Computed example of a mutant assay.
Amino acid sequence: MSPSPRSTAPVRRGTMLACTLGASAAVLAIGLAPAAQAAPGDNGDVKVHDSRTAVDRQQDDPKVCKFYLDAFNFDAGQKVTYTVDQQPPTGTAQVLAGQLTLPEGTGHTPDLSLPDGHYKVTWTFEGEQGSAKHKVFKVECATTSPTPPGGPIGGVGTGGGGSVHGPDTAEIAAGSAVLAVAAGLGIRAVRRRSARNATS
């Protein structure tokens, strides 16, 4: 006696339900995968900025003089710990360290300065995934303008360190006064002689 068609219905319904649940779980797993990879704070970044760069600029300045560290896109209230180390050929020593608290996920250090050389900034934070992030940069401050040939220009009174190209204003004035007195004395002497010759 063959089984009634109705007897297979519960099996089919159970199979379909299992397949539907399995497909839903797979879709949910795929949809949640990016969220699991982007753990809180992992989307944050720290930039090295020249002291004249605006804080809202989200690009690095690879060569700086005075500089600051600028943090973006972290979670509100997150704390970032940073260190700055020399890089060869400059050296290998750690030269700076500190922490940034980011009430709204952004923030920056005050202006910092280091001797000319190669450096790497490394930052870490709670809940980070994988190894600490880092950036390399170079400190290179402009050299002072060269002294004109022959030394500083201007008298001592002007802060130039003394003139090497001629007398300064005070020397010229003093020389003029001496010449004026000498000329006056010479004119008197000529007049006296003329008066004596007239009476003799």
Rank of each mutant, 00 (worst) to 15 (best):
S4I: 00
P10N: 11
V11D: 12
V11Q: 14
R12A: 11
A18T: 08
L21P: 07
A25N: 07
A35K: 10
A39V: 14
A39Y: 08
P40H: 02
P40W: 00
G41I: 01
D42G: 09
N43R: 15
D45A: 13
V46G: 09
S51E: 11
R52H: 10
V55T: 15
Q58K: 14
D60F: 00
K63R: 14
C65M: 02
Y68E: 00
F74M: 00
D75P: 00
D75A: 15
D75C: 10
D75L: 12
V80I: 10
T81N: 15
V84I: 12
P88H: 04
T90I: 01
V95G: 03
G98C: 05
P103F: 09
G105F: 02
P110F: 03
D116E: 09
D116R: 10
H118Q: 12
T122D: 02
Q129H: 11
G130Q: 08
V136W: 02
F137G: 08
K138Y: 06
V139M: 00
E140Q: 15
T143H: 12
P146L: 01
T147S: 11
P152N: 03
V156L: 13
G161S: 04
V164A: 14
P167T: 03
D168T: 04
D168W: 01
A170L: 09
A170Q: 10
A174Y: 00
L179P: 01
L179E: 07
A183P: 01
I187W: 09
A189E: 06
V190A: 15
